[in-house]
Computed example of a mutant assay.
Amino acid sequence: MDQYEYWLSALSISDRKKMMLHAYMKSAKGAYYIEETSLHRFQFLNETDRNTMSQAKKIWDLQGEYDGLVKKQIRLYTCFDPEYPKKLADIPDKPYALYVKGNLPDERLMSVAVVGARSCSRYGEKHAYEFAEFLSGHGVQIISGLARGIDGVSQRGALMGRGKTFAVLGSGADVCYPRENIGLYGDILEMGGGIISELPPGTQPRPYHFPKRNRIISGLSDLVLVMEAREKSGSLITADLALDQGRDVYALPGPVDSSLSMGCHQLIRQGAGILISPEMLLEELGISGGNLQEKKTEAKKMLESLENMVYSSVVLYPRNIGQIMDESGLSAQEVLETLVSLEIKGYIKEISKNYYIRV
């Protein structure tokens, strides 16, 4: 990919118009060298588009900007690139370009999107983590959005299953949002996954970026799991996009009086698959099971009963010692001693003074 492709991909004009420019001029370089006086020949460009292109050529340092992209270890794939994901290329509103840190999903493997509420319940958190961990442990790639709640929990579960996960951001690929997930961001890259965005590097998160990026999450996936969703939520937007793209959608049933399950029940009522267990889903996907559950059971048995009580009170978002004491019913001394033991064994980590998360 060259500096001209980067210039065209970063232009503030629609993806459709970028594709048309590329097609008419045979390359991004051809589009760059269109004479300003000739831009009016392209009827699909309006006055704002023409001004945008003219200004971009004046202020854009071709080589310098491209060197900055390389320095950030971000690769660019346009929809004209043979390495552009085939699943994504088939959707009607595919992005003109993807900026990628790390890797793209392996198209030879199955990919499953896991989405849901940011303010999730312990119930949703538990099942998102377990489904992602189990599927990942059987070679399924997990796609999500690195957001708070279900997204981050499922991606952490995928890493614990020793598989790969890919985060599609509503910011530039070099901008971790929310910032509290910077550890997860790094772990995804370290484990061979990828950070993906259609937005140029340095782009800050904006509310309108997130609904748009959802089509990429579903587009990169073979099916979408909705773990928890309110009656009107971004997760339902992703589910609708998935159905439009020909992807299957599964939803997790929950308590009938929980507002966090209303969206899932609505999807099930409309014909979505019902998530009962990771094992059953794996069977429906036609993937043979393994002994991951047995390994998990063995690992759990290794924890002493006191450690088990404390460990069950530590979750995937930060909790302080007081919260752990309240939930476990143990004294401060018992909790502190057990936290130290669990941290030494690698089950948890202290991310700030007296705040702990699972690892």
Rank of each mutant, 00 (worst) to 15 (best):
I143G: 03
R162E: 06
Q270W: 10
V314F: 10
V70N: 02
S261I: 15
S144L: 14
D257L: 05
Y84H: 08
E284V: 04
A23N: 10
N320W: 14
I216F: 11
G149D: 02
Y129G: 01
N354D: 14
S277L: 14
I274A: 11
E180Q: 15
I143P: 07
V224T: 14
Q155W: 00
Y185V: 11
I196H: 06
E130Y: 09
L285E: 07
I59N: 10
L169S: 05
P105V: 10
G186E: 15
L339D: 07
P92G: 03
Y24E: 13
H127M: 04
Y6F: 15
I196L: 09
I13Q: 04
L88H: 13
E284L: 03
L316D: 13
K72A: 08
T338Q: 01
F80L: 06
R162G: 00
I195L: 08
G157W: 03
Q63L: 01
I182Q: 15
A117G: 10
E294K: 12
I195D: 06
T52V: 10
I182S: 15
A167N: 00
D49P: 14
M1Q: 15
S233I: 15
M262Y: 10
S277W: 13
L252Q: 13
D187E: 14
A89L: 14
R41V: 06
A31I: 06
E133F: 04
F42S: 01
D2H: 11
L303M: 14
L342R: 08
K349S: 12
E327F: 12
S119P: 03
D49N: 11
I188P: 03
R162T: 06
G64S: 04
P255E: 15
I287D: 04
D49K: 12
S38C: 07
C176F: 01
I182V: 15
Q333P: 03
A56L: 03
F44S: 04
I182D: 11
P205Y: 03
A89M: 14
V115K: 10
D106A: 08
L159M: 06
V168L: 08
V226L: 04
Y208P: 02
G170Q: 09
V256W: 05
L306R: 05
V153K: 00
D15R: 13
K212A: 10
P92E: 01
D67S: 13
A128P: 08
V249M: 04
R319S: 15
E350L: 04
P205C: 03
L98P: 09
S119C: 07
K295P: 02
Q245E: 08
V175D: 02
H138Q: 07
I91G: 07
H22C: 00
R319K: 15
S233Q: 13
K72F: 01
M325K: 15
R41P: 00
A299C: 00
I142E: 00
L8G: 02
H138R: 09
G139Q: 02
E350I: 03
Y355C: 01
L104P: 01
S352Q: 02
A272C: 13
A31N: 06
D240Y: 07
D187G: 05
G290D: 15
R118A: 12
G271S: 08
T238Q: 08
Y6K: 09
R206K: 12
Q204N: 07
R50A: 02
